[in-house]
Design a protein around this nucleic acid. Structure first.
Length: 646
RNA sequence: GCCGGUGUAGCUCAGUUGGCCAGAGCAGCUGAUUUGUAAUCAGCUGGUCGGGGGUUCGAAUCCCUCCACCGGCUCCA
C-alpha cells in the first residue's frame, strides 16, 4: 500500500501502482472525466501512470495551468499525427505547449504549407481526436530510440536523442504517431473537442539562423467548442486595442513609405501626448537632481570606436555618413552615452560633485532588420528618455534605488500595475560576448541583485540577457496581444568610464574611476506611447488626453455661448474645442465618443440661461448639470490628482 | 535577413473562368436642415488598383521582380 496525500492534506491509502486517474475515479466520476494529468511530488505525470510510492498528488484539470499545458502538449502530438497522415514523409523538430496553445516545428520537405492547409489539418485532427486514441508511454533505451527514428529518417529527433542520457528516454505513442517525448500527456485524444490552428511561420532549427528553417504551425485547442469561440472573441477584442489601429484612428502617428520603414511620423495629437509625458518626466527629474544636456544626432566614427560600439554593432548599423572633402566618417547616433561621457570629460570633477546626472531626450537611429519593425514598438529612429549617472562605486546602490523610485512613480501615475521586473545577467557560458573585467561584472551583478531584494521588487533573473557592457534591470509590460516589451531600463556600466578614461578626484587627492548608470524610465517615447495606448485602449488619462473637453452646442443659436464656455475653459488651463457642425446632438455625441474625448459639454437654452453646462463623460454617459466654475474645478483637480502620484 | 500571408479612394471593404469609362459605406466638399445625450437628407469630389517589368487584341485579375504591411523566427547598444 502507498500513502497518497491530497491537496487538502488528507492522506489516503491505495494499492501500489494505482494511477492518478484511478484515484480521481475513487473521488468522483465527474472529476475523473476532467483529469488531464496529475502532479506527483511536484512533477507532472500522465494521469494513468502508475504511482508506486508515497506521494503528495494534485489532480490537474483544465482549470490548472499545468492541466492546460498537458492538453496543449498532447494537441501538438495530435497535430503531428494529422500532418503525418496528410503529408507522409514529413519530419518533426520540436512541438511544445506554449502560453496560449502549442506549436510544432516541421520539415515539410517540398510541400509548402499554406493557410488553406491548416483547415484540412484541423479537420483531420478533430477526426482523430474523436477516435479517443490513448497516449501510451514507453521507456526505451537510447539504442531503441535511435533505431526508431533512423528507420523513419528523422534526423532532427536523432539529434535530440543524441543529447539525452540513456535510461531517461521515453516515447509516446498515440494512434499511428510515435514521438520522442518526456510527456506527460492526457489520457486520450477525446479530451480535445475544439481545434484552431492559428498561424504558420518559419522557425530556425534550434533557434539558430545558420541552420535549416522549419515550418512552425501554431495552434490552440479546447475541451469545449464554446471556449474556442470565447477565445476568438477575446482575440478580436484585443486587436481593437492594438496601438497601430488606434494610432491611426485617433490620429496620433503614421508611417510613410516615402519617409522610410520604421521611421514614425508623430501627428499633432500624438506629438502633444508625447510632449506632455516628456514635460512630466522633466519635472520629476528636475526634482531628482538631473541636469539637462543636448547632443547632436551624429557623432564621429572614432567616438564609437572609443566606446566599443563600432566593433560590436558597426557592421549592422546604418552606413556611416562621409564628408565631401576631409574624408571623415560620422554615424547617426545609436545611443547617447558616448556623447555624455565627453560632456563629463570637459572638466575635472571632484568627488564632492558626484553623482552627476545628465539627462537628455535623445533621438537615436538603429538599423533594425526589416522583418523586425513593428508599429511604434520597434522602429529605426526613436527618442530615449535617457540619462547617465556618473557616481562613485558607493553611490551605485542609492542611485539605483532612486531610479527605481522614479520608474515606480511613473508606472503608478499611469496605472501600469501589470509589469515584470527582470534582472539580466551575463551568460556564464559565453564570456567572450561581453567586455569588461570579471571582477567588475560581479560587482555590478551583485549590486543589482541586492537592490532588488532591498527594494522588495518581485523580479525574475535571466542569464544571457545582459547588455554587452554590463548587467541591467528592465521593466517589461505586455501589449494587447500578449507580447512582452521592455520599457524602463537601468544598466550599470563599468566599461565606458574605462574606455573614455573618465575620472574624478577623490578625498585622497587621487584620480578615481566613476561608475556609470544608464537609465530610461520610459525606455523610448515611441514604445512607451505604444504600450500606453494599448494599456488604456486609447482612453488616455485626462492629463494626457490631446483634447480634454468638447463643447457641443445644440444648435447654431448657442454658438456664442459655446465660445464663451470654451474661452473660460482655456483660461482655466483646460484643452477644449467646439463641435460647431450643423449636426444633431446625437451625432455630435457619437463622434465625440468615438474619438475618445474624455468630456462632452452639451450647451443649449437651459445651460446658457444659468451659465452652466451639461456634462457627459466618455464611456459613462450623462453626469448632469454643472456650473462652469465647478466643472473646471473638477477637471483640474482630477488632472492634479492623477499627476501627483508619488 | 528568413518562412508564410496581405496590398483596390483618407478609412473599412466589394470586385478572380482576364473584357463596357473600377464599385459601396464612412470621411471630405456644397446645399438644405437648427437639431437635447451614440449616425438628418440630397448632390458632388476623390483611385498611377503598392512600384517596375512581362504575357495578351485586352490585366486590379496571370507570370517575374522590388517595396511596404501582417503573423512568426533570428536579432535588439
Amino acid at each position: 500500500m502507498i500513502n497518497i496525500t491530497l491537496p487538502d492534506n488528507t492522506v489516503h491509502q491505495y494499492q501500489s501502482g494505482t494511477s492518478g486517474l484511478e484515484i480521481a475515479k475513487n473521488i468522483s466520476e465527474g472529476l475523473a472525466r476532467n483529469v488531464l494529468s496529475v502532479k506527483v511530488d511536484g512533477e507532472v505525470w500522465d494521469a494513468n501512470r502508475k504511482i508506486n510510492k508515497d506521494a503528495r498528488i494534485q489532480l490537474l484539470t483544465w482549470n490548472d495551468l499545468e492541466g492546460k499545458a498537458t492538453m496543449w502538449h498532447s494537441s501538438a502530438h495530435l497535430m503531428a499525427e494529422a500532418i503525418e497522415q496528410l503529408y507522409p514523409g514529413v519530419k518533426f523538430g520540436i512541438g511544445p505547449d506554449i502560453e496560449n496553445g502549442f506549436y510544432y516545428d516541421i520539415d515539410t520537405g517540398d510541400k509548402v504549407l499554406t493557410d488553406a492547409d491548416l483547415l484540412t489539418i484541423e479537420k483531420k485532427m478533430i477526426e482523430i481526436a474523436r477516435g479517443k486514441q490513448a497516449f501510451i508511454r514507453e521507456e526505451v533505451s537510447k539504442e531503441e530510440a535511435l533505431r526508431h527514428f533512423t528507420q523513419k529518417g528523422d534526423e532532427y529527433k536523432m539529434e535530440l536523442i543524441g543529447e539525452l542520457t540513456d535510461g531517461e528516454i521515453t516515447l509516446y505513442k498515440s494512434g499511428s504517431f510515435t514521438d520522442l517525448c518526456r510527456g506527460p500527456h492526457i489520457p486520450d485524444t477525446g479530451f480535445i473537442k475544439a481545434v484552431k490552428l492559428t498561424s504558420i511561420a518559419g522557425a530556425y532549427w534550434r533557434g539558430d539562423e545558420k541552420r535549416k528553417q522549419l515550418t512552425r504551425v501554431y495552434g490552440i485547442t479546447f475541451p469545449k467548442a464554446k471556449e474556442l469561440e470565447e477565445y476568438l472573441v477575446l482575440l478580436e477584442e484585443a486587436k481593437k486595442r492594438d496601438h497601430r489601429k488606434l494610432g491611426k484612428e485617433l490620429e496620433l502617428f503614421t508611417f510613410s513609405q516615402k519617409v522610410g520603414a520604421g521611421l514614425p511620423l508623430w501627428l499633432p495629437k500624438g506629438a502633444q501626448l508625447r510632449e506632455r509625458l516628456e514635460q512630466y518626466l522633466k519635472q520629476v527629474q528636475k526634482e531628482a537632481g538631473y541636469l539637462p544636456v543636448i547632443t547632436p544626432h551624429i557623432g564621429n566614427v572614432n567616438l564609437y570606436k572609443t566606446s566599443g560600439h563600432f566593433d560590436k554593432y558597426g557592421a549592422d548599423s546604418f552606413r556611416p555618413i562621409t564628408t565631401p572633402v576631409e574624408g571623415e566618417a560620422f554615424f547617426l547616433k545609436p545611443m547617447n552615452c558616448p556623447h555624455h561621457c565627453e560632456i563629463f570629460n570637459t572638466k575635472p570633477h571632484s568627488y564632492k560633485e558626484l553623482p552627476i546626472r545628465y539627462a537628455e531626450f535623445g533621438t537615436v537611429y538603429r538599423y533594425e532588420q526589416s522583418g523586425e519593425l513593428h508599429g511604434l514598438t520597434r522602429v529605426r529612429g526613436f527618442t530615449q528618455d535617457d540619462a547617465h549617472i556618473f557616481c562613485t562605486p558607493d553611490q551605485i546602490k542609492p542611485e539605483f534605488k532612486a531610479v527605481i523610485k522614479i520608474i515606480m512613480r511613473i508606472f503608478k501615475a499611469l496605472d501600469f500595475n501589470d509589469f515584470i521586473t527582470q534582472i539580466s545577467l551575463r551568460d556564464p557560458k559565453t564570456p567572450e560576448k561581453y567586455i569588461g573585467s570579471n571582477e567588475n561584472w560581479e560587482k555590478a551583478e551583485n549590486a543589482i541583485k541586492e537592490v532588488a531584494i532591498e527594494e522588495g521588487l518581485n523580479t525574475i533573473t535571466v542569464e544571457g540577457e545582459a547588455a554587452f557592457y554590463g548587467p541591467k534591470m528592465d521593466f517589461m509590460v505586455r501589449d494587447a496581444i500578449g507580447r512582452k516589451w521592455q520599457l524602463g531600463t537601468i544598466q550599470v556600466d563599468y566599461n565606458l568610464p574605462e574606455r573614455f578614461d573618465l575620472t574624478y578626484i577623490g578625498s585622497d587627492n587621487e584620480k578615481h574611476r566613476p561608475v556609470m548608470i544608464h537609465r530610461a524610465p520610459f525606455g523610448s517615447m515611441e514604445r512607451f506611447v505604444a504600450v500606453l495606448i494599448e494599456h488604456c485602449a486609447g482612453k488616455f488619462p485626462i492629463w494626457l488626453a490631446p483634447e480634454q473637453v468638447i463643447i457641443l452646442p445644440i444648435s447654431e443659436k448657442y454658438q456664442k455661448y459655446a465660445e464663451k464656455v470654451s474661452q473660460f475653459l482655456i483660461n482655466s488651463d483646460i484643452r477644449a474645442l467646439i463641435d460647431d457642425r450643423s449636426e444633431k446632438t446625437g451625432r455630435k455625441i457619437r463622434d465625440a465618443e468615438m474619438s475618445k474625448i474624455p468630456y462632452m459639454l452639451i450647451v443649449g437654452e437651459k445651460e446658457e440661461s444659468k451659465n452652466q453646462v451639461s456634462v457627459r463623460k466618455q464611456g459613462d454617459g450623462d453626469l448632469g448639470i454643472f456650473s462652469l466654475e465647478s466643472f473646471a474645478e473638477m477637471i483640474n483637480s482630477e488632472v492634479k490628482r492623477l499627476q501627483e502620484v508619488k
